[in-house]
Design a protein around this nucleic acid. Structure first.
Lengths: 179, 179
DNA sequence: TTTACCATGTAAAGAGTTACATGATTCC
DNA sequence: GGAATCATGTAACTCTTTACATGGTAAA
């Protein structure tokens, strides 16, 4: 149930609409967790039903928005998640590694084509991550809390960058080896 | 549909029973892909229905085994997967990174406890990977094909180790920073 | 005889993906 | 007037997880 906690976590920072949540998922949180609208909106309704968030339905002019805010019960649940620490027993599922595992079954040309494609994809991903890091580097949150939050959010992207870089280097050396 | 292709890939090496497939998943392939028995057995039945594998039901004594073998159609499908290269649009879902993202919301003690727990988990994982690598290093496949297959399988684990090491180093530096 | 391993599944619930559906507002 | 963005959803399907269920064989 990490979708649930990723939403509760965002709402612990400030109240948000479903649309804003999706934007944060796509822009910043994408390196750690992401979800489709069609998963987010129903989950918000479930959270409301269970009293973990409260919703204020606004109608500015004729446009409707639902602002979601964490309740005390929601804050408690988030805290529980932090404390549980979680065994995180999830089985690994990584299509990239799966293809590498079966690389010996592929033809040389297929190997080359796939490596080149993945290299380009990862390079683009790294560039996008660098953009975010550069943009946030000039952000000057006013509160100490804001600084602390941002610092770890950036650390999360840093780690993702480090892992992606390891993968990219693996690709480059594999490309050299194959020739 | 990567479960399907991970199974077809294994059967391209040699015919296997569901039980053997699960063992390979757990021992070697676990670094790339894994699945529960309850997912593997039904998938084998679907693959048979669709003619991608053929099954020989054996009864040694009173014990039953179903040996699964790739058909020509199965080999074609696997080849299609290799060629398609795949956009692999999957959204990222990494509970580790998710927790890091929200680290600023956690208390110092929770941060410390969680980092220590994850560090131990990853250290154990690395040790297990090293075991496999050491075991396979002394394996001497007879055919050139066998050597090539094994080489990339080990490369897959190497990459997983590199990524895990990056994560572990991040944890260690985070632990130092928190104090 | 009991433990570890071999061997195969079903059922129900939960999570994620794709496709469909609608309409308002803002900026060029 | 059209494109981009704001804004919220439902339905159907697929994939994954957890729990349940059964029985054989080999070695200590």
């Amino acid at each position: 149930m990490s979708l649930r906690h990723s939403i509760l976590g965002l709402l612990a920072i400030r109240p948000l609409t479903g649309y804003e949540i999706k934007k944060i998922f796509d822009e910043t949180l994408a390196h750690a967790w992401n979800a489709y609208d069609s998963q987010i909106y129903p989950e918000l309704h479930r959270l409301e039903e269970q009293g973990l968030i409260s919703v204020e339905a606004l109608t500015d002019g004729r446009r409707q928005r639902r602002v979601n805010e964490l309740t005390e019960a929601g804050r408690t649940e988030l805290q529980r998640w932090f404390e549980e620490g979680g065994p995180s027993n999830r089985l690994t599922r990584d299509e990239f590694l799966l293809r590498v595992f079966f690389f010996g079954l592929m033809h040389r040309t297929e190997q080359r084509a796939w490596l080149a494609q993945e290299r380009e994809r990862l390079e683009a991903e790294l560039a996008a991550a660098d953009d975010i890091l550069a943009r946030e580097a000039i952000a000057q949150p006013k509160s100490a809390r804001g600084r602390d939050l941002l610092r770890w959010q950036m650390a999360c992207i840093d780690l993702h960058v480090a892992q992606t870089t390891a993968r990219l280097e693996w690709i480059r050396s594999a490309e050299k080896e194959i020739g």
